[in-house]
Design a protein around this nucleic acid. Structure first.
Lengths: 124, 124
DNA sequence: CATGGCGGTATCATTTCCGATACTATGGGT
DNA sequence: ACCCATAGTATCGGAAATGATACCGCCATG
């Protein structure tokens, strides 16, 4: 589990936000979910899509998503082994969230848009 | 900044998701933003709403939100000092994201819904 | 005079996360 | 015999995020 946030979820109204965040927190979970919305994928496919992830991290993140009931892990007992990851029903309910994130990222998180902090003439 | 994620944002399509996540990552940013959507608030108000946050953390998170251009910090030079935090235009664009998170949290992150892992009869 | 509220900062310690590397098992190809 | 691919695990170490605590100036109140 990432960053152990609150255990009690029945606190202030804003807590639902935190509660939701707990599930997609972790360096790679957002992207993993995003890719799984496209289709079911096997381990090595995800690995290729995430490029910079290590095997250990991918495994860890997938295991957490599985533990949280968002992702289903299906082992096909073949040689060579084949393991497929897909979204559960619960996982699919995250679609609006992931898409909201993606849309915002596309619109407002581009490098060119980032530096609206203060005066831009600090290139001394 | 939290968890230093990728620096390059022009990688795979899923990256926009990660990029967006960078801005609301941090244990308290989600809730802070949520509360600021309600209205402008001063430091101590936020502190009361977040209950478990330490002064240091609240300051840190607010400073990061400010640095990212999502939150505006206004100092009223009075006695006692009054500092108000409000959302910037850029910050307000996060509304769909935060609300998607809140809605999901309300619907699917309740304690009763969490344990769909495996067989529940492991209470040995 | 001591206390409390405001909005912080400074310092230190801990917890947690993440990355790198090495190792495993099976079977196929050459 | 040796290397490759799949899908992992195990172990170690460092970096980063978070928490606890103490301290600051200022003023009003009791």
């Amino acid at each position: 589990m990432p960053r152990t946030r609150h255990v009690r979820l029945d606190c202030s109204p804003g807590c639902a936000v935190e509660a939701a965040l707990q599930f997609i927190d972790g360096k790679w979970k957002g992207v993993i979910l995003f890719h799984l919305f496209e289709r079911t994928m096997r381990f090595s496919e995800l690995r290729r899509r995430l490029a910079n992830v290590t095997q250990r991290m991918l495994t860890t993140q997938l295991r957490e998503l599985e533990r949280d009931g968002l992702v289903l892990r299906t082992i096909h007992p073949e040689i060579p082994p084949r393991v497929e990851y897909s979204l559960t029903d619960r996982g699919r309910t995250l679609h609006p969230v992931i898409m909201a994130l993606k849309d915002w990222g596309d619109m407002y998180a581009r490098p060119a848009t980032i530096p609206p902090a203060t005066a831009p003439s600090a290139a001394a």
